[in-house]
Amino acid sequence: MLQPRDLVLTNFHPERITSLSQETDSKACAHTENASKLCADEFPLTLLSQLLIVTSLLLGLLLTPALATSVSQQEIIGGDFQILTINKEWHVATIEKKSTHGSWKTIWHYDTGFIATRVLPEKVCFASIMKIKEMPSFDALPALAEESRQMKRQGRPAKEITFIIRTPVRDLMSYGPDIFVMCNELKTYVAYEVHEPQDTYSQGSCIRLDVLHLLGLNYCRDNITV
């Protein structure tokens, strides 16, 4: 695909364009009645049209990459809508569920290695380090979500990750601007992934999220009250 930097304009000077246009159009005017009047009217339009074409081309080349960096798709999981948004430029996946039974939003930042989840109506956020190897592939995520929807899987997600909620986040901005905006006005806690026996945390107080039926996120209380 042609990139903006690959576009090279040579001899791009208004006077040069006018000269070339007049030289070409004068041949046609020579065989036309009232040639002087007709050509005088057409030369300014010729210059203007060339400038508009060049401007349109430049704008198209600049805008096309920007429009292709983010894509969204909507899936129905367990009767509720989940919206998956992929930002290809920043390698960020955002999944959001809006429901009367409880809305939530989770941001997976594959570049920085952070994951953050906002849960409503609890009005709380959890931020943690994301282990890339345990997450669905970023590039394959849209296809995996569509496959899961078509298969209409039932029961629990194929894979689950459990986090223990422990301490409040001190520097929310360090997790990135998108996570900061999502969690800034809510209580936000650091959540640590665990592979410990279930008796080390309270199973009854876990918040369980089914993300696209691909991954279950379990946030369980430890020794703090959310």
Results as ranks from 00 to 15, higher is better:
171 D>R: 13
221 R>D: 04
132 I>L: 06
160 E>T: 14
101 H>T: 14
71 V>N: 09
139 D>N: 10
147 E>Y: 14
11 N>L: 10
40 A>R: 13
27 K>C: 11
17 I>C: 06
217 L>H: 07
94 T>P: 02
55 T>V: 14
43 F>M: 12
137 S>T: 08
162 T>E: 05
222 D>Y: 04
117 T>C: 05
147 E>P: 01
51 L>Q: 13
99 S>K: 12
84 L>M: 08
224 I>A: 04
204 G>L: 10
34 N>H: 08
94 T>F: 02
169 V>W: 00
223 N>H: 10
123 K>A: 14
14 P>L: 09
34 N>Q: 12
185 E>C: 09
197 P>W: 10
115 I>G: 00
79 G>L: 13
125 C>G: 02
183 C>Y: 05
201 Y>A: 03
130 M>L: 10
145 A>H: 03
48 L>M: 13
192 Y>P: 01
130 M>R: 03
125 C>L: 07
187 K>V: 11
217 L>T: 02
225 T>P: 05
58 L>M: 07
24 T>S: 08
110 Y>P: 01
59 L>G: 00
12 F>D: 07
165 I>N: 00
202 S>Q: 11
99 S>Q: 09
85 T>S: 11
7 L>P: 02
130 M>T: 05
144 L>N: 02
133 K>R: 09
52 L>T: 05
166 R>C: 07
136 P>R: 12
169 V>P: 00
87 N>E: 08
189 Y>C: 03
31 H>W: 06
75 E>H: 09
122 E>S: 07
165 I>Q: 00
92 V>K: 03
202 S>T: 08
178 D>E: 15
88 K>M: 07
98 K>M: 14
76 I>T: 11
3 Q>I: 07
27 K>D: 06
120 L>T: 12
173 M>I: 06
182 M>F: 06
139 D>I: 14
67 L>S: 04
226 V>G: 02
223 N>M: 07
71 V>Y: 07
110 Y>C: 03
22 Q>S: 15
132 I>M: 05
217 L>A: 08
120 L>I: 08
10 T>L: 14
196 E>N: 12
128 S>A: 13
89 E>T: 09
143 A>V: 15
61 L>R: 02
99 S>E: 13
52 L>C: 13
125 C>D: 05
26 S>K: 08
120 L>G: 03
172 L>G: 02
194 V>D: 04
14 P>Y: 06
143 A>D: 15
131 K>I: 11
177 P>M: 12
207 I>T: 12
170 R>Y: 03
161 I>G: 00
87 N>I: 04
140 A>C: 09
68 A>C: 12
14 P>S: 09
93 A>W: 04
203 Q>Y: 13
171 D>T: 14
100 T>Q: 15
203 Q>W: 11
167 T>Y: 11
86 I>V: 12
61 L>M: 07
154 Q>H: 12
183 C>H: 00
158 A>S: 07
89 E>I: 08
112 T>H: 02
94 T>G: 02
4 P>C: 05
20 L>W: 05
113 G>H: 07
183 C>K: 03
115 I>P: 00
195 H>M: 10
187 K>N: 14
222 D>A: 11
155 G>R: 10
8 V>K: 14
174 S>Y: 03
101 H>W: 13
113 G>K: 07
52 L>S: 05
